[in-house]
Amino acid sequence: MLFPLGYALWLSLLNYDLGSGSQEFIGLGNYRELLNDARLWATLLRTVGIVLSAVGLEFCLGLLIAYGLYRLTFGVRALNLLLFLPNIVTPVVAALFLRWIFIGRWGLVSGLLIGWGIFPPDFLGDPAWARVTVVLADAWQFTPFMILVLYAGLNTVDQSQIEAAQIDGAGVWMLLFRIMLPAIRPLIVFVLAIRLMDAFRFFDTIYVLTGGGPGTATETITLYTYALAFRLLQVGKACALGVLTLLFVAVLVATMIRIVYRREKGAF
């Protein structure tokens, strides 16, 4: 099952270049070249920024809404379904939908703002706004996943614990932070880990929304990988970059798990 990964690993050791047709073994040459490449570090840093903001936003928003749904006594099922819809839209088109919302002038947001007499900022063309838009786009697609999983998790928290806390006079927020969150910690690790892994591979939406621009404002590591493989046709180098990404994300996720489970050995 891991064959494709092994094959990619093998390619990463070759100077496999479709443009010049070369295919020689160069050991760690690709890695050495990449680690000395300023573009790698710049995109990596930018990716971390975008991923952490997106996943952070998704988690906070997801938790807030899940808790709201948990406290709501009616209409939960309908809301749940409707909230999940953005996650179902085919990613190929989801980005196009968002483009129609955010694009200057004839985009929905711009159009409405103009209608209200406000001159809108350039959501895709201004570097700062472009980053915000990309984060919002990811959040739009994947907050539903967070909501669904966290909502289900909140429902598993032991009712007797909650009642005990309420008798002790815990308020709504106290209840959430002191009782519920610790109880669903494993679940939180699960969603955060899955989202981190996916967000690092996040490609389609950025590619369609900004193409990595303006300038390099939203160029993430996957866009760089894509450019290497299909623009510059340096497949070996692209695979090496993929392996580096993999290692980086693995370390990040492992660290997160270690922090959460500092004291409980083997709970993961």
Partner: peptide
């Protein structure tokens, strides 16, 4: 749990690798 954690992490590697690059090996295979 130590063994299972190791195995699981190995499998998850697939999820962390850029899919665009897996497309080539899959096609070759």
């Amino acid at each position: 749990s130590t063994t299972s954690r190791g195995l699981l992490f190995g499998l998850l590697a697939m999820r962390m690798f850029p899919h665009i690059l897996l497309a080539i090996p899959f096609f070759v295979l």
